[in-house]
Amino acid sequence: MRKIFTPLTVLVALMFVYAPVMIANAPYESTMGLVQKIFYFHVPAWWAMFTGVLICGIGSAMHLFRRAPAADRLAAAAGELTVLFGAIGLVTGPLWGRKAWGVWWQWDARLTMALLLELIFVGYLLVRKYGGPGSDKLGAAMAVFGMANVPFVYVSVNIWRTVHPKTSVVPTLGPGMFGAFWYSVLSFMLLFTLLLTIRFHLEQQRAELDRLYLAEEE
């Protein structure tokens, strides 16, 4: 696994270096202007976040029901990335909103939903850190419940927001934007994979270190 770190890191770095060129060359959107370019970072961040939620939830379920510590380590890595990419989305979202609606935050359904998921997974990290002995299981329960909560958050927040409908600038992709968009998605997913493997590897080594400490004492 270690062998792929270097090539993957180089690849991701090159892709992110070239990304501004792709984004700059994409067609200029007239209503939103330059701010529309945020889109190429904003949406891929969501995708990475949801991948994180999924991996964290499934890994935690495996840890709870099968007692698989490796799955728990993967879940912990994914939980941190969920919070990281969620934060990217939550920062770029209001930048878009400022231009589209004139306010930084106007309880847009998707942003609100992301904020809730962010809170759930910050809770996950907090309980893992401060839960005391057995906190891995407490965190695992939080992650499983958080994943199961996604459809409910989605439905309730959506209906809640449509009760007071407001005109919003729905982001639509014009022709010629797809190339840059998919390029960004691929870059983000590769970055996500890279960070996940590094973080997972670190956790594995930490567990191995614990094991060696225990073996040393014998």
Binding site: L116, G123, V127, Y130
Partner: peptide
């Protein structure tokens, strides 16, 4: 957990927002 008093609302409220 020693931190149960503060952890309960931290974990419970985001999940029960729906």
């Amino acid at each position: 957990a020693r931190t149960r008093d503060v952890m309960l609302p931290i974990l419970l409220y985001p999940i029960t927002v729906p």
